[in-house]
Design a protein around this nucleic acid. Structure first.
Length: 469
RNA sequence: GGCCGGGUGGCCGAGUGGCUUAGGCAAGGGCCUGCAAAGCCCUGUACGCGGGUUCGAUUCCCGCCCCGGCCUCCA
């Protein structure tokens, strides 16, 4: 079984056949670091993290590139508005994105290149495109001549005529003359007070699309396996990347993967410009990070999903069920030896689900089936079978970065934790004595007081356990 | 207007030309428990509307309605 993914360009599911056997190169369009990350950005990162981790689990050497757009119109504008240097704003927001990724255990990319660190590569690429007759300089700008590109519009299935018909007038802030309204900027001449870099066409900065063409080739080569990003990037961003790279003679990405967007309560796309964002910081104020990860990752990556307090609550309930099983089964099993053969079917089901266009919903179904079967084995005290079930459940969870033991260890080390544990143990002991002499009124009174304090007791075959409600 | 995606049981969310029609949450019943908690079992019979193809369609085709994305910066 090999991984099959939906390819936007061919509009169908295709097997991933790496260009270099055994290794896979992935380029992801990362954020423009202009404002604090919202849960939509995190959903993107989590969805692509599942791709990253599944490729690694499948045995590939993965080069995962996720760029950072650290200079653009909005960054410049917002920084000026804040009375802050543009580079300080982008550095600050880059840090906020990294913190958000770390909070939900998104693997670090192999490299996360920034636009401002790749001006030589960008300028060289533009020169190549001009030399090959596909771009022209005009008034300090450089434009790509869209009509010279064979197959422009293939990714987004747009015809040139249709695009022409809906094309608006020349966008603001461009001083040069386009030969054709469809042409787009590879290089923008500097305006007073804006950051700029020297180039053969005068001081200026890169257009939005060219950076990705340049950085992808820099780190993955002229041909690579997978290019990913949000559905909102298909046109014009990815269409233009394809055009630029084709004009430079690069084969570029083999497969184009696009994930769905997160909607806010009203059903509209969550975005900075619509002002309906829930920031990652806001979400984490009310939702545990592992639950946020579970919730954002639970829907199929290509579907749109809503994020709200209700969705978060459901994720909490579903994930707690998994946590409870892993904890209870772990205690019961101890170091019982694990017979891998007993759990092969579950793993195979899980692997087949992920191989089929990253079918996380079906993969989660396999995990939940394992949990249900495991809980039954726990009740029956069938420890060898339980040990195997627990092992495979945790192995599946680990692929999704959701293992409660290794990846999300409970708050530990704090002196307070030890104190609370000792105090609760004292109360549990007293309640045990009361139960032994069948003084249930007293036992229940003790339990009620713990409940009121936010401590839930469970009487299990392995003794009384407690957790925070 | 053009291009794309979607409308599934109380909710979220998979999937399929008929077969045992995921999984989670919520609900009801049962079991377990001193009582709870946790857990297990059972129940609910869904596929936007109208046609068509078919022995048979939620699944394929046509039309319509509704929702969303892109066509301007956007994960």
């Amino acid at each position: 079984m090999t991984l099959r993914l939906y390819d936007t360009r061919t509009r169908g599911v295709r097997a991933v056949e790496p260009i270099r056997s055994g290794s896979v190169g992935v380029y992801v369009c990362g954020p423009t670091v202009q404002a604090a990350p919202h849960v939509g950005h995190l959903r993107s990162a989590v969805a692509l993290d599942v791709l990253h981790r599944w490729l690694v689990t499948s045995g590939y050497a993965v080069t995962f590139v996720r760029n950072v757009t650290d200079v653009d119109d909005k960054i410049i504008h917002d920084a000026a508005h804040n009375d802050e240097p543009w580079w300080a704003l982008s550095a600050r927001i880059t840090r906020a994105f990294d913190d958000a990724y770390d909070a939900v255990q998104v693997l670090r990319p192999t490299i996360d290149p920034r636009v401002t660190g790749h001006l030589p590569q960008i300028i060289a690429l533009i020169e190549t495109i001009i030399e090959r007759g596909h771009a022209y300089a005009s008034g300090g700008d450089v434009y790509l001549s869209v009509r010279t590109v064979d197959g422009y519009g293939a990714l987004s299935n747009q015809s040139l005529d249709a695009l022409q018909a809906s094309e608006k007038s020349v966008p603001h802030g461009q001083t040069g003359e386009k030969r054709d309204p469809l042409d787009f900027a590879l290089w923008k001449s500097a305006k007073p007070g804006e950051p700029s870099w020297p180039s053969p066409w005068g001081a200026g900065r890169p257009g939005w699309h060219i950076e990705c063409s340049a950085m992808a080739v820099e780190y993955l080569g002229e041909a690579f396996d997978i290019h990913a990003g949000g559905l909102d990037l298909v046109f014009p961003h990815h269409e233009n990347e394809i055009a630029q790279s084709a004009c430079a003679g690069h084969a570029f990405a083999r497969l184009w993967l696009h994930h769905g967007l997160v909607t806010a309560a009203g059903g509209e796309k969550m975005s900075k410009s619509l002002g309906n964002s829930i920031t990652v910081a806001e979400a984490l104020a009310t939702t545990r990070p592992q639950v946020l990860r579970y919730g954002l990752g639970a829907a199929h990556y290509r579907s749109s999903m809503q994020w709200s307090a209700d969705v978060a609550a459901e994720a909490e309930a579903a994930y707690s069920r998994i946590e409870t099983f892993v904890r209870n089964a772990g205690d019961a099993v101890g170091d019982t030896e694990v017979d891998e053969a007993l759990s092969k079917a579950s793993w195979d089901e899980f692997a087949a689900a992920l191989d089929d266009d990253l079918g996380v919903p079906q993969a989660l179904a396999a995990i939940h089936s394992g949990v249900r079967a495991g809980n039954a084995l726990l009740a029956a005290r069938e420890l060898p079978a339980l040990a195997a079930t627990l092992a495979v459940v945790r192995r599946m969870l680990a692929v999704l970065a959701l293992d409660p033991v290794d990846q999300w260890p409970a708050g530990s080390g704090s002196e307070l934790t030890r104190v609370v544990d000792a105090l609760v143990a004292l109360a549990i002991e007293a309640r045990g004595h009361a139960r032994d002499r069948k003084d249930y009124a007293q036992a229940d009174a003790l339990r009620d007081r713990l409940t009121a304090a936010g401590v839930v007791l469970e009487d299990t075959a392995d003794g009384v356990r407690w957790r925070l409600s």
